[in-house]
C-alpha cells in the first residue's frame, strides 16, 4: 500500500488539475480525483503495460470526469480555487488587465470567473483538449493517446475550441 501511496503522490497534482479545469469545481474535482485513484488501484491487475501508467491513469480520470459531466449537464456550479500569489506578478496576465482595471486583484478574479464561464460553454471534449494542451502543456501525441483518437482530431478540436473561446472572451482579448 505504501508503494501505491507514492504513486498517488506522484500524479495527484496533474490528475486533480485536469479534473478541476474540466469541472471548475474544487469539491467535484476532489471526489473524482479520489475515485480515479481508487478505480486505478482496483483495476491494477488489468493494466497490461501497453501504455504508460501515467497515460492509463489519465484515461481513467478523463472517462470518469466525462461521465460525471454528462450526468451533471445543465446544473454546472462553479467553486473556483483561489489564484496563487504568482498570478499577480505574471507579466502576461498583468498586461491583459492593467489597462482595464485600476485594482489588479479584482481584475484577476473577474478574469478568472469569465474564463471559467467561457470554458464551461465548450463541449466536454473541446474543453478537455484545451485543458490538456494550453493549460497543462501536453503534446498533441500525448493527448491523442489519452483520448484514444488520432492527432488530426486533437488538432482540429483544439483549433475549434480556441476559436470558440476567443469569441466568448473577445472583450478581454482586444
Amino acid at each position: 500500500m505504501s508503494a501505491y501511496d507514492d504513486l498517488v503522490q506522484r500524479y495527484q497534482e496533474r490528475i486533480y488539475a485536469t479534473i478541476y479545469h474540466m469541472t471548475s469545481n474544487h469539491e467535484d474535482a476532489n471526489d473524482l480525483a479520489q475515485d480515479t485513484f481508487i478505480k486505478a488501484y482496483q483495476a491494477l491487475k488489468s493494466f497490461k503495460g501497453g501504455s504508460s501508467f501515467y497515460t492509463w491513469v489519465y484515461r481513467i480520470a478523463v472517462n470518469k470526469t466525462i461521465n460525471f459531466l454528462k450526468q451533471r449537464k445543465n446544473r454546472a456550479q462553479m467553486s473556483l480555487n483561489d489564484l496563487d500569489f504568482n498570478a499577480e506578478h505574471d507579466p502576461d496576465l498583468v498586461a491583459l488587465i492593467s489597462d482595464k482595471t485600476p485594482r489588479r486583484e479584482a481584475g484577476l478574479a473577474e478574469l478568472q470567473e469569465k474564463l471559467n464561464e467561457a470554458m464551461l460553454k465548450l463541449s466536454d471534449y473541446h474543453r478537455l483538449v484545451v485543458t490538456l494542451h494550453d493549460v497543462q502543456g501536453m503534446s498533441h501525441e500525448e493527448i491523442a493517446k489519452i483520448m484514444d483518437c488520432n492527432i488530426g482530431t486533437v488538432r482540429s478540436r483544439l483549433f475549434y475550441a480556441r476559436q470558440q473561446l476567443q469569441s466568448y472572451l473577445s472583450e478581454y482579448l482586444k
Binding site: 474544487h26 491583459l96 484577476l108 478574469l111 478568472q112 474564463l115 484545451v130 476567443q166 472572451l169 482579448l173
Partner: peptide, 17 residues
C-alpha cells in the same frame, strides 16, 4: 491565439487550499 493562450495561463495559477 497568442493572447488567448496568455489568458489561459491564468488557470495554472488556480490552486486548491
Amino acid at each position: 491565439f497568442d493572447k488567448l493562450r496568455k489568458l489561459l495561463k491564468l488557470k495554472r495559477h488556480e490552486q486548491p487550499p
